[in-house]
Design a protein around this nucleic acid. Structure first.
Lengths: 207, 207
DNA sequence: TAATTATGGTATTTGATAGTACCATTGTTG
DNA sequence: CAACAATGGTACTATCAAATACCATAATTA
């Protein structure tokens, strides 16, 4: 094996990620990838079999990165309200991040050609975020802070309120960049409303 | 003018709608449109100037249809909980309708080529639905049924809870068809939670 | 060093499609 | 009926891109 194989292939994936996710599958030709990344067509076909293969590999690689970005520790410390707010801000910031939005757009655009990628993004994205919140809610219920009949359902409601309309707006509008304060305000308001619904006496009395 | 001009052009738009929205802009060639709709390339270029022109015209036509589908009377009658539930079910049913989902996908896919269409969809879709709910909430506040500090914010939260994760799941997953009961359950649960947050005594005592 | 393998780079093949040109035909209007 | 405008249909041009073939070269191994 030559020396810089891995480095070169990493560069290849990096360039492919940037191009595919920024411009979409059909807008990118292999010539563009090669022009930026170096290497040859031959190498791409040896490694990935086809343009489709390269695309799938890059999307999955990018997806992993984003999941890392959003993931949280299993058990955060602090006041429930603070913790929910903190998790929420990280979550919504990750979701509305331009790179994430671009990924969503590209996946949605190619859903008919690559349905399995859509499924994967759904599992690793939305479902995962619901799970994180749900787990924490269950913890809070056990601790007696909250009284929730159905934590899974409640988690979805909370996440959707936190996300607010920011995700769909980001997907549809290229102009309106999501601002940090918007995220914070949205999340705080959501957490606030949420606790109003489910807080037990022990929590609502603390102030 | 020939007799069936409008009829023929309507057929042309119908076919274009079906094809573009089902398959996306790039997947559809004018030959496919002509093969199904009849007529000629010449006519398309006379009417719409280009493939892009035809695309924009079809998307806008379809968008109008969907807005009709979702729109509600200004003032619905009945118990607030019932009314909110009824509006919500109609809303979410419209949003998760396969045709609507297909439109969203196509618009999102072409957002870089046609950003103005994305903006329009955002205005006519999400923003419009928030406005409908917000107006009704303000009415309820005036009537003394609810006590809400910020109706616009609250409307967004309610809509997002009602929509739940159904929209994003529909966008990402081709397999999982949204079921009627899912919608109903989601909306009812959302309305329920929402009223728990904002209902005044007069409403919460009625049961 | 020699043999082997993978790679870079380029040229070629193949296929698709947007847009234009042209002409015969159909429908419209005076 | 005659002149005119719009349409259908086909052929043509130009472009672009995926995939393959080929050869010289760089790296690997015996």
């Amino acid at each position: 094996m030559p020396k810089g194989v891995e480095k070169r292939n990493a560069a290849l994936l990096d360039v492919a990620k940037e191009l595919f996710i920024e411009k979409g599958y059909k807008e990118v030709s292999l010539d563009m990838v090669i022009a930026r990344a170096g290497g040859s067509r031959r190498n791409i076909y040896n490694r990935f079999g086809s343009k489709k293969g390269l695309f799938i590999a890059t999307i999955e690689a990018r997806l992993d990165e984003i999941v890392q970005l959003i993931s949280t520790e299993d058990r955060e410390k602090g006041d429930p309200e603070e913790v929910l707010t903190r998790i929420g801000i990280r979550l919504v910031t990750g979701i509305t991040n331009p790179g994430t939005i671009a990924l969503f757009r590209t996946v949605i655009a190619e859903i008919n050609n690559f349905p399995e990628i859509g499924e994967k993004l759904y599992q690793q994205g939305p479902l995962r975020s619901y799970k994180v919140i749900s787990n924490y809610l269950k913890h809070l219920v056990k601790q007696g802070y909250l009284s929730i009949p159905d934590c899974d359902q409640a988690a979805i409601q909370l996440v959707e309120m936190m996300r607010g309309h920011l995700q769909i707006r980001s997907l549809l509008c290229t102009e309106q960049q999501v601002k940090k304060v918007e995220i914070e305000q949205n999340v705080k308001s959501a957490v606030n409303s949420f606790l109003k619904m489910y807080a037990t006496e022990s929590l609502s009395n603390r102030e």
